[in-house]
Simulated scan of single mutants.
Amino acid sequence: MPTRVLLADDDPMQREGWRLVIDAQPDLEVVAEVPDGVQALALLRRTVVDVAVVDVRMPRVGGVQVTSTIATDARIRLTQRAPVTRVVLVTATDLDRYAGPGREAGADAVLYKDAEPDALLAAIRAAAAIRRGTPS
C-alpha cells in the first residue's frame, strides 16, 4: 500500500506543486489537501494519514500546533492508530526559528518550502518508515 499523505498549506499553488511531485511516486499517494490547521486536524480525526506535510504558518492554527495536537488528541490517536501520523513541517522563511519548536512538538523534519523535490520525498519516506517502524 502506498504511503498516505496529507498536504496542509494555505497556498493552493504550493499544494498543487507538491501533489504533482508526490503523486508521481508509486509508493506515495496524496489523500487530502487542506488550507489551514483547523481543517487538517478535523481531517485527521476521520481519515487515516501516514504523513502530513504541514506549513508552519497557516490561518487559524499553525503547523507547530497541528504537530503537537496530533500527538495528544484522543480522537486523532484513535483514528490514526498507533503509531500516530508523522509530520514534515515546511516553511517559506525562518527555518531556524521553527526547527526547534517543530521538532519539540514531534515533527520528523522541517524543510524550506522551496526545497528540492527529492528532499521533500526523502523526508516523507523517512517519516513513513518511522510510522511503520522500519529503517529508512
Rank of each mutant, 00 (worst) to 15 (best):
M1C: 07
T3P: 06
R4S: 11
V5Y: 06
V5R: 08
L7G: 05
A8E: 03
A8R: 03
A8S: 01
D9C: 08
M13I: 11
Q14W: 13
E16P: 14
R19S: 03
L20I: 08
V21D: 12
I22K: 07
D23W: 12
A24H: 15
A24G: 15
Q25K: 06
Q25L: 08
P26T: 10
P26D: 15
P26H: 11
L28D: 02
E29N: 06
V30F: 15
A32H: 05
A32F: 01
V34C: 12
D36G: 12
D36L: 05
G37F: 02
G37L: 02
G37P: 03
V38S: 08
A40T: 06
A40E: 08
A40Q: 09
L44R: 02
L44D: 02
R45L: 03
R45D: 04
R46M: 04
V48H: 09
V51F: 10
V54E: 13
V54I: 00
V56K: 10
P59Q: 07
R60W: 14
R60H: 15
V61R: 02
G63C: 01
Q65I: 00
V66P: 06
T67F: 02
S68F: 02
S68M: 03
S68V: 00
A71W: 15
A71M: 12
A74Q: 11
A74P: 15
I76L: 00
L78M: 10
T79C: 11
R81Q: 13
V84F: 06
V84H: 13
V84K: 00
T85Y: 07
T85S: 12
T85I: 07
V87W: 02
V88R: 07
V88A: 02
V88Q: 12
L89S: 10
L89E: 12
V90M: 11
V90Y: 01
T91F: 04
A92M: 12
D94C: 05
D96V: 12
R97F: 11
Y98H: 13
P101Q: 02
G102F: 00
E104I: 04
E104Y: 06
G106I: 01
A107G: 03
A107S: 03
A107V: 06
A109M: 04
V110Q: 04
L111D: 10
L111Q: 08
Y112W: 09
D114Q: 13
A115S: 13
L121W: 13
A122G: 14
A122I: 13
A122Y: 13
A123R: 09
A127T: 07
A128Q: 12
A128L: 07
A129F: 08
A129P: 11
I130P: 05
R131A: 05
R131E: 08
T134C: 07
P135G: 07
S136P: 15
